[in-house]
Design a protein around this nucleic acid. Structure first.
Length: 181
DNA sequence: AACCGGTACAACCGCTTGTTA
DNA sequence: CTAACAAGCGGTTGTACCGGT
């Protein structure tokens, strides 16, 4: 059996990184650069596996990371790129300066997926399904009913009941601009 | 105040890919 | 060509936090 950098788990720290661990990693990489991740933990005096160090550095400690809320432009770009590339998070993140694949993936799963579903768009294929289309119409109808205090809107979504083809929701996927800092 | 469910995000895991001897 | 290894990637899990009851 081949030994990986994470095999001696009993000696490894796991879970959330402490400030001291972060600082050790930052100090080491600042001084020596990103060398061999397998040997880095020992050299830096960290009881972590190389993989864990790499992840921590790439996603959270690296300089020039943006962090914080995504802008509308970034939202839009992620959605368009996802429609084109699928779950290729590193490729998508590559077009968003200061963002990591992990951050984009998490943001997609916790925000954008829901946002698309609310809009009646299937986040898996970026199409408006009949079910979702109907559901979104119901959602908006229900909302406007509440707002207009009881005025009834009839026949929700029936206008597309005979349309068997899904509706393309993202017409312009040809130009895929990246966001420049 | 205590509990509960939902959300956001950090971290882990296993697989794939690229490189080198 | 192939085996071994390091690095990268994407899916999944764990957990802290927050708002509602």
């Amino acid at each position: 059996m081949r030994k990986t950098c994470c095999d001696n788990k009993e000696e490894m720290h796991r879970g959330t990184w402490s400030k001291q661990e972060d600082q050790k990693l930052i100090d080491y990489i600042t001084q020596h650069g990103e060398g061999c991740w397998r040997n880095l933990p020992k050299a830096a005096g960290l009881l972590r596996c190389g993989k864990s160090c790499r992840l921590r550095w790439m996603n959270y400690l690296r300089p020039n990371l943006k962090r914080g809320n995504f802008s509308e432009d970034e939202d839009d770009l992620i959605i368009r790129l996802h429609a084109l590339l699928g779950n290729r998070w590193s490729l998508i993140a590559g077009r968003l300066p200061g963002r990591t694949d992990s951050e984009v993936k998490n943001y997609w799963n916790s925000h954008l997926r829901r946002k698309l579903i609310k809009m009646g768009i299937d986040p898996n294929n970026h199409l408006i399904s009949h079910y979702l289309h109907r559901k979104s119409l119901e959602f908006w109808t229900e909302n406007s009913r509440r707002e207009t205090d009881g005025s009834l809107l009839s026949d929700t979504g029936s206008s597309c009941a005979n349309d068997q083809q899904p509706i393309r929701s993202l017409p312009d996927l040809n130009s895929l601009p990246s966001i420049h800092p």
